[in-house]
């Protein structure tokens, strides 16, 4: 399970990469593995306002539909338009080519609610334990 150290993580298994006031958002390696083969992705358009903890998109695997939740609030400035045509990228490269949107954050203090890589790793371990 890959958990890059430079990223921040949400409890809903999104990752965030921050550069200045721009947050790049995707879903984690753990999330893609749980989903299985991703066959469909629905992303918002540039200019859409997204709100922390509210769904901004949808990923569908063969078996299930899952919402993707905004880890931060803000305005969508860029969308990975290649992703809907090759949703399998989410399984292959969740932290790289499968980035989903870039957001200009309206409240960067929201980042404080996100987990570090070490915290997310611990969170996953606890989740696994709960399942057993």
């Amino acid at each position: 399970m890959e958990i890059p150290s430079q990223l921040r993580y949400s409890h809903e298994h999104e990752w965030v990469a921050v550069e200045d006031n721009i947050a790049t958002i995707g879903i984690t390696d753990y999330a893609q593995e749980q989903l299985g083969d991703v066959v469909y992705v629905e992303l918002p358009e540039v200019g859409t306002q997204i709100t922390k903890d509210e769904a901004f998109g949808v990923v569908e695997s063969v078996k299930a539909v899952s919402d993707i939740y905004a880890p931060v609030s803000g305005t969508v400035t860029e969308v990975n338009v290649d992703l809907p045509d090759s949703p399998e990228t989410i399984n292959e490269d969740p932290y790289g080519d499968a980035w989903m949107i870039r957001v200009e954050m309206s409240d960067p203090t929201e980042l404080d609610d996100l987990m570090t890589a070490a915290e997310y790793k611990k969170f996953l371990e606890e989740q696994e334990k709960d399942e057993e």
Binding site: G36, D37, V39, S61, V62, K63, E88, N91
Partner: peptide, 20 residues
């Protein structure tokens, strides 16, 4: 295998990938 409940049975949903 990833196992699921199906009709009262614990069965494989997938081994590696449904599509593969």
């Amino acid at each position: 295998a990833r196992l699921i409940e199906f009709s009262g049975w614990e069965m494989p949903l997938q081994y590696k990938s449904i599509v593969a």
